[in-house]
Simulated assay, not measured.
Amino acid sequence: MESSARETSAPALINWELAASTAARLAPAGPTLGAAEIATAVENLRLMADISVQHVHDITGLEAARDLRDSSVLVVDRASWAKANTQSFAVMLEPAINKMLEDRRGAIAPGTANVSGAITGSQLGAILAFLSSKVLGQYDPFSALARDSTAPAGGRLLLVAPNIIAVERELNVEPADFRLWVCLHEQTHRVQFAAAPWLRHHMLDEIANLSGHLLGNVDSLMERASAAAKSLKDRTATGATPGRGVILDLLQDPEEKAALSRLTALMSLLEGHANVVMDAVDAGIVPSVKTIRQRFNDRGTDRGLIEKFIRSLLGLDAKMRQYADGSKFVREVVAAAGMSGFNRVWESAEHLPTEPEIHDSKLWLERMGL
């Protein structure tokens, strides 16, 4: 007979299907396009994704770029992006949820879990609905690990067509140039994971470790969440700097903070590297790249109150600062050791920089003997 932990399954604690359907229902409408326009945009995005691979190879020097398959590039709408992320979240959180259920065997009734799952699923869906109109593209390394997934073993690249089109119209830039510019960033992430086949499971282990700490302290989680929400409300009311975000405020235990530090360093490295690749792109690759950069960077200065609140909740502004630190790390290492020296980060998990090393590249260079 199966245990209570098995009866109260991971999907019951978070209703992933409800999260996906809620996101699809709440996602803002995208730009109006005719059938022919949609078909043309999808074809062009696929073309730009394919063209960008060689440029990424030339800039990074990573041979893994040569083996990328077009089949793992998906041009999606907002609802499909949200559904894909619920699948990845399920993969990332399942180990921690199952461990929590095993540790609390018999303490969570199936009925209670289902109600909790519906609430959590709805909340996650609302967050995904907000993000679904903001994300231009995303490399999903965990899709191949999802149940019943038909994704290629190397993960999949998602290009959110309505968002890309909306932004290129908003900025009044050349569509083909902007699409290539976006694809260069996202294809860099594909190359990173292709160059480091161990990275997918390493990242999954780190996420499971962090979420395991959070869920393992579930008895104090609601109390900490309440205090963090009050802090956010106070900061918003007074106009204070948002800080790290409510989600990060939940972390108090030293082990939780250490787990977050490792993930922060990894994400800073991945995004910083992708940003450096984009910055290496000149007019010979994207003719209007200077205009795109200027207008794209300027668009973030005029956000509404609700968007600012949600960004504060998720800590997205803090996240952008971390990515800037990652870019600085990559540039300094390349300047000191060349691209081949920097590419040692993809050889093993032991070569990944720590958070202190992200902030002081000399520490990493010394550890690597460069």
Rank of each mutant, 00 (worst) to 15 (best):
A208F: 04
M203L: 14
D219W: 02
L214T: 02
V191F: 05
P197L: 12
I207V: 12
L214C: 05
H202W: 13
N217D: 07
H201S: 15
R200A: 15
A195K: 13
L204N: 00
A225M: 15
L199C: 06
G216A: 06
A196Y: 11
V218M: 12
H201G: 03
I207F: 10
H213G: 06
M222D: 09
A225P: 01
F193R: 02
R200H: 08
M203W: 09
A225E: 11
H202C: 07
L210R: 07
R190A: 08
P197N: 11
R190S: 04
W198F: 15
M203E: 09
H201L: 15
S211D: 06
A194S: 10
L204W: 05
G216E: 05
S211L: 08
A195T: 13
W198Q: 09
A208E: 00
Q192E: 09
F193L: 02
A195E: 15
F193Q: 02
H202Q: 08
V191H: 00
S220Y: 02
L215Y: 11
L215V: 08
E223L: 13
S211W: 10
G212F: 04
W198S: 13
D219F: 03
S211M: 10
F193P: 01
E206Y: 06
R190H: 01
N209V: 07
L199D: 04
G216F: 02
A208C: 01
A225R: 13
D219N: 06
V218H: 07
E223I: 10
L215W: 05
L210E: 10
A195H: 13
L215I: 13
E223S: 13
S211E: 08
N217Y: 04
D219Y: 04
F193Y: 07
P197Q: 11
R200S: 14
H213Q: 11
G212V: 06
L215F: 14
H201P: 00
M222S: 11
R200E: 13
L204A: 11
M222V: 14
Q192L: 07
S211Y: 11
P197M: 12
S211C: 08
L204P: 00
A196R: 06
I207D: 00
L215G: 08
A196E: 07
I207S: 01
A195Q: 15
L221W: 04
R224N: 10
S211V: 10
